[in-house]
């Protein structure tokens, strides 16, 4: 297949995946929340409530769209797209399996971070464009949070780049081939703090995607619905899809950097089509396990206070991640044969 068409095909696939994924992650979330809280969750709409996301989708799409008073039309319309489009673009470089990737970009990691930064601007403009004070406060919070957590996240990422010598996501995964203890999270020989680094990265990705307990952008009990307060119908739906796409990307990055990506825990990898499926299976298993953890966390903890959140970043995560960076550099230099 010629390259451009393969890419276009993959974009279509990615968009479908992002949409369905968002819809069914919502289902998972509601169902998971239900069982954590000892209730059933969506059940009556289709078998096991599986048609629930579709019903929600239909409803959101046919909701009346209007511009709230005091909103800026351009910003109000553009903001959901600015959240959604970069998130979907980021899927382009994620290796779902060894060959199942839209484009192997040698700076894939950078690309994801670059697109993620557009996402922030989208939220900010959306909140500001709504002409609602709560939305503006939420947007401002969201941005300072994103900036604060980008630092430890990038530092941890740089550590991993230092270890693997590449920014190509697929290469990073390939570096973790073999038994499961070759995954970076278990490589204490590279850095003693590797599990901690994983934790830092995971916490940062929670914060970057505005998930509980860091859901400042949508702090329900404080700011009504945060930056989304004024968005009716599909505007809200698009934001939501963007949010869930971001969760997938955050978790996928954690999986790729620390949990071996599409590598299976045992050193066995069939070739050809079966290999694609095998890799896909392991990648998605790890990915959804991590996403389930995200959901699990959301339904367990209260929300952090905003300044505590910044304190956590500046006083805990950044020092530790910097220390980890130094430690990794030292360990690589001291044990160069590893």
């Amino acid at each position: 297949m010629p390259e451009p068409f393969r890419v276009i095909l993959f974009i279509i696939f990615v968009m479908a995946f992002a949409g369905l994924n968002a819809a069914y992650l919502v289902w998972c979330e509601r169902k998971g929340a239900g069982h954590i809280q000892r209730r059933i969750g969506p059940k009556e709409v289709g078998p096991f409530g599986l048609l629930q996301p579709i019903a929600d989708g239909i409803k959101l799409m046919t909701k009346q769209l209007f511009l709230p008073k005091g909103a800026d039309p351009l910003l109000f319309m553009a903001a959901p797209l600015m959240v959604m489009v970069p998130a979907i673009m980021s899927f382009m470089v994620i290796p779902f399996s060894e060959t199942f990737v839209a484009r192997e970009v040698n700076i894939g990691l950078l690309m994801i971070f670059a697109f993620a930064s557009v996402n922030v601007l989208g939220l900010l403009l959306g909140g500001w464009g709504s002409g609602n004070k709560y939305a503006v406060i939420a947007a401002a919070r969201c941005v300072s949070q994103n900036i604060a957590y980008e630092i430890p996240m990038l530092v941890t990422t740089i550590t991993m780049v230092m270890v693997t010598n590449t920014m190509n996501l697929n290469e990073i995964v390939r570096a973790q081939a073999g038994w499961f203890f070759h995954w970076h999270i278990f490589r204490l020989d590279i850095s003693l703090l590797m599990p901690v680094a994983f934790l830092i990265f995971f916490v940062c990705s929670l914060a970057e995607t505005n998930r509980a307990p860091f859901d400042m952008a949508e702090a329900e009990s404080e700011l009504i619905a945060g930056a989304y307060t004024e968005y009716p119908g599909m505007g809200f739906g698009v934001f939501f899809m963007g949010e869930y796409a971001n969760i997938v990307i955050g978790c996928a990055l954690s999986v790729i950097l620390f949990l071996g990506g599409w590598q299976s825990p045992i050193p066995f990898h069939p070739v050809g089509f079966l290999g694609v499926i095998w890799g896909l299976f392991w990648f998605l298993t790890k990915l959804y396990a991590l996403i389930f953890t995200v959901i699990w966390i959301r339904w367990t903890y209260p929300r952090t206070q905003f300044y505590e959140l910044l304190n956590l970043s500046w006083k805990v995560l950044i020092p530790i991640s910097l220390f980890n960076l130094i430690l990794t550099a030292l360990q690589i230099k001291i044990f160069p044969w590893l």
Partner: peptide
């Protein structure tokens, strides 16, 4: 304390529901 919290909600995840339908 955070992990303990996760443990508690995790335990309840597998307990039977109390819903009366």
């Amino acid at each position: 304390s955070l992990f303990i919290g996760l443990g508690i909600t995790g335990k309840y995840f597998f307990e039977p529901v109390v819903t009366m339908q």
